[in-house]
């Protein structure tokens, strides 16, 4: 994979419990953004075990706007593999 190939790069949003992650997935699905629930490694978040969502990095601005509008609280955004 080319380092600048953002079309296939995957980004993550750390959310906490699975219900928050599923709420985010549903909100994104409603505006046509694909995202999936992922378990975050304990070292990926400040609080230990948590769930998040993963999506195409190209969607990140829309993801941020959609989750903000849906009042889904995101503790951090990061690119997969970069914490």
């Amino acid at each position: 994979m080319h380092i600048t190939d953002f079309s296939s790069a995957r980004c993550r949003a750390a959310l906490g419990p699975t219900s928050a992650a599923l709420r985010a997935v549903r909100a994104l699905q409603a505006v046509g953004i694909n995202a999936e629930v992922v378990a975050l490694a304990p070292n990926e978040t400040k609080r230990g075990c948590a769930f998040g969502i993963e999506f195409a990095c190209t969607d990140e601005p829309r993801v941020r706007a959609t989750l903000r509008a849906a009042r889904v609280s995101v503790s951090q955004y990061f690119k997969r593999g970069n914490t």
Partner: peptide, 8 residues
């Protein structure tokens, strides 16, 4: 257990 925030 809650599956989340385990360090707390």
């Amino acid at each position: 257990g809650s599956g989340v925030n385990s360090r707390a």
